[in-house]
């Protein structure tokens, strides 16, 4: 594995050494639970639900900004986790990363569907959503993670941060982001990559 990914011994720039990934609630990892889910184990799925439902719903809500639609999409995502559990391969990333990728793609699919895109412009301007950063009931782990993300985001340049967050949290395509920020397409491409690389190193994400 290349050193640039491993970052062995180079802790400079990392915030906090705790990197919660699969959140071992109880004694079994999310990855282990997914293996059982793949064999049709409903009890294991309930435990998966406990770990991922909040992150899935929160992310979908963040992108869609509409509770009713977000409930629908979150339900699709969670059912998809049940359906496709056998396709998760631990060699290709963490279980939580896999689940969140499914959630994000579904949310983005929904937000980009024709009507939703029109509505979203409005929703962005309205305030029917409780911003994730303001949610009251949050676990200590969630709060720490949020704090870590925020501090790492603060280390990006403004253009990197806006490129990354407009795409990820608002579901804009990179062409739309280029238009919104009024910068060339090539700039957005590289800011997204550079921004994520900086985030990866700051968070100490290992692959």
């Amino acid at each position: 594995m290349e050193p640039r990914q491993r970052r062995a011994g180079s802790d400079e720039g990392r915030l906090g050494s705790v990197a919660p990934h699969d959140g071992h609630a109880g004694d079994e990892s999310l990855a282990g639970l997914l293996q059982r889910v793949a064999r049709g184990d409903r009890a294991a799925f309930e435990r998966v639900y406990e770990q991922v439902a909040g992150p899935v719903f929160g992310l979908v809500l963040r992108v869609l900004r509409d509770r009713a639609q977000s409930e629908e999409v979150a339900q699709e995502v969670l059912v998809d986790v049940w359906r496709s559990a056998a396709r998760y391969q631990s060699s290709r990333g963490t279980a939580m990363g896999w689940v969140m990728t499914i959630a994000h793609r579904r949310a983005v699919d929904r937000v980009r569907s024709a009507q939703a895109a029109v509505d979203r412009e409005d929703r962005l301007a309205r305030l029917e959503v409780h911003r994730p950063f303001d949610e009251v009931a949050e676990s200590v782990e969630t709060r720490l993670e949020r704090e870590r993300i925020r501090r790492c985001l603060d280390r990006l340049t403004e253009l990197q941060r806006e490129s990354v967050t407009s795409a990820y949290y608002d579901g804009y395509s990179y062409r739309e982001v280029a238009e919104l920020l009024q910068v060339p397409l090539a700039t957005v491409k590289s800011r997204m990559r550079d921004g994520l690389i900086r985030m990866r190193d700051c968070l100490g994400v290992e692959t």
Partner: peptide
């Protein structure tokens, strides 16, 4: 892989009670 994993961390920061 690394960048996708990083993006997922951004996603987790949005956690709310379902």
């Amino acid at each position: 892989r690394g960048l996708t994993e990083t993006a997922a961390r951004l996603g987790r920061a949005a956690t709310v009670s379902p």
